[in-house]
Design a protein around this nucleic acid. Structure first.
Length: 430
RNA sequence: GGAGAGGUGGCCGAGUGGUCGAAGGCGCACGCUUGGAAAGCGUGUAGGCGGUUUUCCCGUCUCGUGGGUUCGAAUCCCAUCCUCUCCUCCA
């Protein structure tokens, strides 16, 4: 969420920033809403002052036993009452109108985010590894998985419908091995705190990480008004909701292995086969809560960690910087990691690392108290939040199947994962 | 799910309609005291919004949250969320 004061003081800059999001006139609209609210509040406060003065006079008169003066003051204030009541209602409405509007405005992107319409305009930053080729025709992951008899979409469809999968034996084990491998990397080498989070959250949490109000359709809602998280970014970031941290506590670095649930309402027809796009998938997530001066560096650190996961798995990938049209609602800048999939013969997104500035922190009131050079604490400021996948497990399984497939349909197990798979080196075709 | 209790400032805790944003204590900050420290003494110590304008001040709102009653609500009423205890259920 944006600081209305900042919009007020920098209307041109704000307009320019929103134009990059294909939105025009937003700043002006916000300022109008704010202006009518403030004008109203000023008037209302004037009335409240009158009422309060009169009420104090009543109290004073009563305590002195001067009933006549008290009655006079009561009469005087009686007609202000109704005006104030309607005025307070109007204030609530005006405040809500402004707030609702601000909640729907996307974050301001960094200047270095390239202009562009969609993913075709993303900028490739660098490539690592050589895309794998085979002297046989590379299969897609679902053919490999089904061929192994360890990936069952039909069984999943019977009980759950489309976009679910059942993994068995070594593939089920692979899921667990990947989670452990990734969590070890993030906790042992990057000092992240491992967290088990709620998968079901209330709507406030989702306003905080900006899934709401705009993207309700992407989520599953329970009958009692809760939502299944679409990413554990939601739960991890909300750990600092409504808190004021000490500056010395920063940075806070979390990681979590969790299931994620997406209704993917708008993606019918895309990636209908296989595990690329599922209603339920698992992911190891990174979330950092940092001092505003440190968020640039933190995003690079997160990116590095995600890259390390891929390179240790021996997977070729590239890093792209998302263009304006592809950058998410809450992000100031996003880097995607795309892994090479021989079966699809293309790079596919496997991780996304975003910095949100204070956009989410404002929404969930996550602040810290700065300490000056004398050690004295000054007023609270908003923290910066970042999130990144490290990595999406389902898609990592896809990548391993396609990159480590062999001519006879077996799949080699990447060296780094073998200790996590009981020393196994190969998932044998039956 | 049933019954009960409770949610007050950084913390503990008073306050059941009137000058209460709120006693007292703890903590913290500054000062005095001291060779230094402790103790002691003194002073100060919530946040949001708006105005003024900036290092001073004023107004307003905030005692879980949202409504209501009232000239006036931390105090009364309603709803709601959360916590605790007991029962039930259960992994």
């Amino acid at each position: 969420m944006h600081d209305i004061k900042w919009i007020r003081e920098n209307p041109e800059a704000f307009e320019q920033a929103m134009l990059r999001r294909k939105l025009s006139g937003t700043g002006q609209k916000a300022i109008e809403l704010d202006k009518s609210r403030r004008d109203h509040v000023a008037k209302l406060q004037e009335l409240q002052t009158q009422r309060n003065d009169a009420s104090k006079a009543i109290g004073k008169a009563k305590s002195q036993g001067d009933e006549v003066a008290a009655q006079a003051a009561i009469a005087k204030v009686a007609d202000i009452k109704q005006t104030i009541k309607t005025g307070e209602e109007a204030e609530r409405e005006l405040t809500k109108a402004l707030n609702d509007y601000l909640l729907e405005l996307p974050n301001i992107m960094f200047d270095d985010v390239p202009d562009g319409a969609d993913e075709d305009d993303n900028i490739e930053m660098h490539k690592v590894g050589t895309p794998k080729t085979f002297d046989f025709e590379a299969k897609q992951h679902f053919d490999i998985g089904e061929g192994l008899g360890l990936m069952d979409f039909e069984a999943a469809a019977k009980m759950s419908g489309s976009r679910f999968v059942v993994l068995k034996s070594e593939l089920a084990q692979l899921e667990r091995a990947l989670a452990n491998f990734m969590l070890d990397l993030h906790t042992l080498e990057y000092g992240r705190e491992e967290v088990v989070v709620p998968l079901l959250v209330n709507e406030n949490a989702l306003y905080g990480t900006n899934q709401l109000p705009k993207f309700e359709a992407d989520m599953f809602k329970t009958t009692d008004g809760k939502y299944l998280i679409s990413t554990s970014e939601v739960s991890l970031t909300n750990l600092v909701r409504e808190t004021t941290l000490n500056e010395a506590d920063l940075p806070v670095r979390y990681t979590s292995y969790s299931n994620c649930f997406r209704s993917e309402a708008g993606s019918a027809g895309r990636d209908t086969r296989g595990m690329i796009r599922q209603h339920q998938f698992s992911k190891v997530e990174m979330v950092s809560v940092v001092h505003p001066d440190k968020s640039e560096a933190e995003q690079l650190l997160m990116l590095e960690a995600a890259e390390l996961v891929l390179s240790r798995l021996g997977l070729a990938y590239r890093v792209v910087k998302l263009c304006t049209g592809d950058t998410g609602f809450g992000a100031k800048r996003t880097f995607d990691l795309e892994v090479w999939l021989p079966g699809q013969n293309m790079y596919r997104e496997i991780s996304s690392v975003s910095t949100c500035g204070d956009f989410q922190a404002r929404r969930m009131s996550a602040r810290f108290k700065p300490t000056d050079s004398q050690g004295a604490k000054k007023g609270a400021q908003f923290v910066h939040t970042l999130n990144g996948s490290g990595l999406a497990i389902g898609r990592t399984i896809v990548a391993i199947l396609e990159n480590y497939q062999t001519a006879d349909g077996s799949v080699e197990i990447p060296k780094i994962l073998q200790p996590y798979m009981g020393g196994k080196t190969l998932i044998k075709s039956k």
